[in-house]
Write a protein that binds this DNA or RNA. Sequence first.
RNA 1: GGCGACAUAGCCAAGUGGUAAGGCCGAGGUCUGCAAAACCUCUAUUCCCCAGUUCGACUCUGGGUGUCGCCUCCA
Length: 476
Amino acid sequence: MAEQIVVYNTMTRRKEVFQPQERGKVSIYVCGVTPYNEPHIGNARPFVTWDTIRRFFERIGYEVYYVQNFTDVDDKIIRAAHEQNVSWKEIADRYIAAYFQALDALNVRRANVYPRVSETIPEIIAMVQGLIEHDYAYALEGDVYYSVEKFAGYGKLSGRTLEDMLAGARVEVDERKRNPMDFALWKAAKPGEPSWDSPWGKGRPGWHIECSTMSLKFLGEHFDFHGGGSDLIFPHHENEIAQSQAYCGDPHSFARYWVHNGFITIHAEKMSKSRGNFFTVADILKKYPGEVVRFFILQTHYRSPLDFSDDRLQDAQAGFARLETAKENAIVLIEREGTSDTAKGLAAAARAAQSAFYEAMGDDFNTALAISYLFAVAKDINVYYNDVINRGVAFDAENFSTVRQVFDDMTDIIGILEAPAERDMKEDAAVAALIEERLAARKAKNWVRADEIRDELKVKGILLEDSAAGTRWKRI
RNA sequence: GGCGACAUAGCCAAGUGGUAAGGCCGAGGUCUGCAAAACCUCUAUUCCCCAGUUCGACUCUGGGUGUCGCCUCCA
């Protein structure tokens, strides 16, 4: 399955066949967040996306090494610390914790390492020094700047030239810099800011250098994927390339495939902290389960913009509920025994759907298409459930187990429906007692009492569903 | 101003040079004591507009319109 994987590479602007640096292994570096406030849903998109990509690679037999950094030394963190009168470290720790909490709720599995800038200072200093030695950078009154003119390939990722950039110059010109586009590798310390000793005096790393350093530290000079939101293409990723390739002296070093996700928007406009038009993951989770939010994100291809709204989340929830029902139906069925061959065709269809699913995932991680095959299997499960439970069709344990495995395999990759669906079907003894009472009432054709019980539970947010196999309930 | 992306049904959203996946909503139906859930049927002669290439384009080319993004922190 999925013999060939193609990936859209921002660098070349087209899909390319994926060839791992090292056979059977995939190395991934994804730019993490600057932890200075609550993560919003837009921040979460790349991590849900990459978690899914990672699951897919692992499922088809690759060994994945996934690195994601935290930029915990930064202007915005320092500002927040001053405003709240706490240490920068406290701000960073607090929001890193909030960030993990959000990702856990979205079923995002942990990366292999989460390096932080504050823990990578010696390596960063060494890299900056190396860039100076190679004449790609220059020190200036305690700052160190990267000299973009020295790097021939500057602009190759974002598809622009230095001339283009200067033409549209919205950068404030610092006369000391050799070129207006030169960017800081190291910033001289200002009073009240965290700083570290360096050959250029006390200071701290500039933005960009940390990712070059960390990827080199954990993944080496060559690795497979580098990801993040498309707002990072320029200048962040462009500068990383300039730093890393200049440092290694190899124009082919660094990431081989650049994968950028589209934005989450609100009323078609980019959601961002600076615009203030964002919804935090925590707030959304008050209204919707994390799995629904995850499903919502993955129903759109990662490169497309995704407009966020309550209505759309509700639509996603409705679709998700049907998958959930299929999962529950499968669980009810699988407990049965049966040696017929009534699910033979279903098993074949499920295998076909599975193969189509993998093909979709292998084509630039097309989760939207892949999910359509998940729905196909869900429908088959539901039809079969009705056949067996309500229409007396003989059960086919062997073939149905194939169908069920396929379904679970797909949901595992998408990263949904992981919690056992039985969870809310048993717990509450009081509900079970009422269901018993209602069953008795129904047997006695006491519809008034039966409906009374159903309405009573409904008020409590519990929905009853009758079938020939009994009554089950769920929270709404 | 420079660079780039996108434009598919009521809503969301895949997709291909050969005649439009899937989801949501809506209508009708099956099942059910009634519901709910599930399932079935229906719901774009058509893919922003105009040219061109082609036997054939929604898919390629050119132009236009619109929306969005990057160029400043940003996932």
